[in-house]
């Protein structure tokens, strides 16, 4: 099974880093992966997106015509990519910035990533990692341990940011775990 993940938001939300993190996590997991960022005209405040492909087999195109996973961190990116994703896609929508009244047939996992990062973690910039943590739990393909390893490598040069971002990943992971737990009851 090949998972084709698009992460989208505005420039500065850490979209590209989140993509590289997932790809590194897949590598730690011993899987094939590609990560292809949008590049060029993006700037802080503009839109940015990146495509990560994670697979048990050799990957062809790093560009996805029809992604099956979307992490959307802001409303313009949500509107841009919801019509492009496959049926039965997994969608994680940052409800701190996207209204929870989706007109699309696919029901997203709404998670207030920015609020969680800001209020629970104390670092608003970690919203991207909160969303990735949620995906790790839903997808169940890359282990939390391996995404932590990836996080350590991502911040090799800024080790003071490792713990706070691990907390962000854990918070997103727990958020989904708790929803699943509540549904079982």
């Amino acid at each position: 099974m090949q998972n084709e993940i698009v992460i989208a938001g505005f420039g500065g939300q850490g979209v590209i880093l989140a993509g590289a993190l997932i790809a590194q996590g897949a590598l730690e997991q011993g899987m094939f992966t590609t990560c292809f960022p949008s590049y060029g005209a993006e700037m802080r405040g503009g839109t940015a997106n990146t495509t990560v492909i994670v697979s048990e087999e050799e990957i062809g195109s790093p560009v996805s015509a029809r992604p099956n996973i979307l992490i959307s961190l802001n409303e313009p990116s949500f509107e841009r990519f919801m019509p492009k994703i496959a049926d039965n896609s997994i969608v994680i929508a940052n409800s701190s910035m996207i209204p929870e009244t989706s007109k699309y047939p696919i029901k997203p996992y709404f998670i207030a990533a920015t609020d969680i990062a800001d209020k629970e973690i104390g670092n608003v910039k970690s919203a991207n990692f909160v969303a990735v943590g949620a995906l790790i739990k839903i997808l169940n393909v890359i282990s939390l341990e391996n995404i932590f390893k990836a996080c350590e490598k991502a911040f090799q040069k800024k080790p003071n940011l490792i713990d706070i971002n691990k907390k962000a990943l854990q918070a997103g992971f727990n958020f989904i775990k708790n929803i699943a737990g509540a549904n079982k009851k």
Binding site: L27, T33, T34, C35, F36, P37, Y39, P62
Partner: peptide
Amino acid sequence: IIGQMMEP
């Protein structure tokens, strides 16, 4: 694409 993509 090959220039910009990341891969192991």
